[in-house]
């Protein structure tokens, strides 16, 4: 009959109304500033720079290769290379960024910078309480503000960070092994060369 559904609906909402007072479990909302829902592991907001160890300047993984700066669609990354070189995780000498700024008022959280970085140096943060009273200065994050330790990365994205660490360790091991092999090969070569020098050569030596 006409009107039945309306009455059913009204009863339902009345149940909600009364229920929400004596049964707090019904309330689906969280009173935000006091209580927060912990961020999901896959949450992402704005990028940050990962550093290893304790010193942000020394341990920064970024090598100022500027790939992210080129790839960033809205062009919100600004990098100036430094002249000082420091070894990277593979022990190779690399330059460091002198200035590394991200304008988060422009950043669109696309994560492309993370995807393209070959050094696992830039990752997405979950921090979202970034409101400020100054929309120019305070939303332009510099190297110091962007740098966060690897432990923090582990805390917000545990699975991903472990994977990254494993990969880096593997690569490092490989690099070390290669370096060792290289060194050995070099050593062998020198040994061989020395041997060759010692023995009279049947083959004519190339002209110098």
């Amino acid at each position: 009959m006409l009107g039945e559904g309306i009455i059913k609906g009204m009863v339902e909402t009345a149940k909600n109304f009364v229920g929400s007072y004596h049964d707090p479990k019904r309330l689906t909302t969280v009173e935000y500033p006091e209580n927060k829902i912990p961020a999901k592991e896959n949450a992402r907001n704005f990028p940050f720079l990962v550093f290893d160890g304790v010193d942000a300047d020394k341990g920064l993984r970024c090598v100022a290769c500027q790939i992210c700066e080129k790839e960033c669609p809205p062009k919100c990354i600004y990098i100036i290379k430094d002249t000082v070189k420091k070894p990277d995780y593979m022990g190779k000498m690399q330059i460091q960024p002198k200035i590394f700024d991200i304008d988060i008022s422009v950043c669109m959280s696309c994560q492309i910078c993370v995807e393209v970085c070959p050094f696992e140096a830039i990752k997405m943060d979950t921090q979202f309480e970034l409101s400020t009273t100054d929309r120019f200065e305070n939303l332009l994050l510099n190297k110091r503000e962007l740098a966060k330790p690897n432990e923090y990365y582990h805390k917000i994205h545990p699975t991903e960070a472990t994977e990254v660490d494993e990969r880096l360790a593997a690569e490092k091991a490989k690099a070390e092994a290669k370096a060792k092999a290289d060194a050995e090969a070099k050593a062998k070569a020198t040994v061989a060369a020395a041997a060759a020098k010692a023995a009279p050569t049947p083959v004519p030596a190339p002209a110098k």
């Binding site: 909402t13 909600n16 229920g19 929400s20 309330l27 689906t28 909302t29 009173e31």
Partner: peptide, 10 residues
């Protein structure tokens, strides 16, 4: 307030 309670909000 009432609408909130009906929708299980505060």
């Amino acid at each position: 307030k009432g609408l909130g309670r009906i929708q299980n909000r505060l």
